[in-house]
Nucleic acid binder design. Structure first.
Lengths: 188, 188
DNA sequence: CCTCCTTATTGACCACTGGTCAATAAAATA
DNA sequence: TATTTTATTGACCAGTGGTCAATAAGGAGG
């Protein structure tokens, strides 16, 4: 017997994720409750646990999507017709831009200490970092050590991490972000 | 009428802070409840609210102490009889060391998004950063822009932030920390 | 049409959280 | 001793994440 096809009114994972995304983005993971999400959807909170194992896993599904987004953004820059040095800079800036424009997700992607969430994150961060690292290695003129690229990444990460707390979006700090990119480019 | 002097058995702020410190350090801010602290002290959780306005303020008192500790550590390095370049490096490494050996506190000092806690942090971070910035400016040979020192700091911060999640203490990542310091020193 | 089975949904329930507050015990003062 | 100040308690509140038996709703087979 084939699985019952869901009817229009019924809740889908996508519907839940859409509602959850809005709330998580505007309030942050910690400050959104499953009951709030359910209220937004006009259903009981118990229902959410039928579709997702728990709050962490619901958020994880959202985050997975965002890693794809980050990867796309990096690939987009790589596809541009630009001087290599400039492209390298734009990679760094694009990374910062992504972080500051998706703060709640960046938090989970690279900042959370919450083990429940973190145990779910496996390939996401690695794949994104691989793209980043390979781009830097290729676009930089010099022969870079693996370690140097990693330390460069951590330096970028520090910028994002800090301004995630003080700023609502990339635009507010765009100039400084470019300065940071230029600053770090001296290293490679 | 002078204030009543507390008697031996009565709870003091220090006693609460000692118990709270242990718990916060071992479990992190989010995973310690006021009731757990009260249990540790053998008192009712209501009592804690007599001595501290709320959980955030209790933690804040702890954090204040830790800023003093960080400042002392930096001053200690500055007092050493060393080549200026080496001293500069040690400042950077000492900062990382402090962050990784006081992770729960570093989290609050420089990472928390919790507004309740953050609104309490005023002078602490500024004073510590001032010491850091002035040391770097003085010890570096070059004339550095204020912005460059700030970006250097953010790069250090990124290292600490990241390894706070993956490591239990400075020792586990000492070599890499030194490499990071050397790496960043190329910038100044 | 009527079973039977799968799928979705509900809301009561649990143990927990941070925080408040009237009642009260105990010590210091007058 | 009587009064005032200080410290402590535990019931209480509104909220949390999560579980689960009961139930409704839809499809498949007869």
């Amino acid at each position: 017997m084939s699985p019952r096809k869901p009817v229009q009114q019924e809740l889908t994972q996508d519907m839940i994720m859409d509602a959850a995304r809005d709330l998580f983005v505007s309030k942050g993971y910690q400050h959104v409750s499953m009951r709030q999400i359910a209220k937004e959807l006009g259903c009981s909170h118990g229902t959410l646990y039928y579709h997702f194992k728990n709050k962490a896993e619901l958020f994880y599904e959202l985050v997975e999507d965002h890693f794809v987004l980050l990867n796309q953004r990096l690939q987009e820059v790589l596809g541009k017709d630009l001087d290599e040095r400039e492209k390298l800079k734009q990679i760094l800036v694009a990374y910062i831009e992504f972080g500051l424009n998706h703060q709640s997700h960046y938090e989970i992607m690279f900042l959370t200490k919450d083990e429940e969430v973190r145990n779910l994150l496996n390939q996401g961060p690695n794949r994104s970092y691989e793209i980043f690292a390979q781009s830097v290695a290729r676009l930089s003129g010099k022969k870079l050590k693996v370690q140097e690229i990693w330390l460069l990444f951590l330096s970028l990460h520090g910028f994002v991490t800090h301004y995630c707390r003080y700023v609502n979006g990339f635009e507010e700090v765009k100039d400084l972000a470019e300065a940071h990119a230029d600053f770090l480019l001296k290293l490679i």
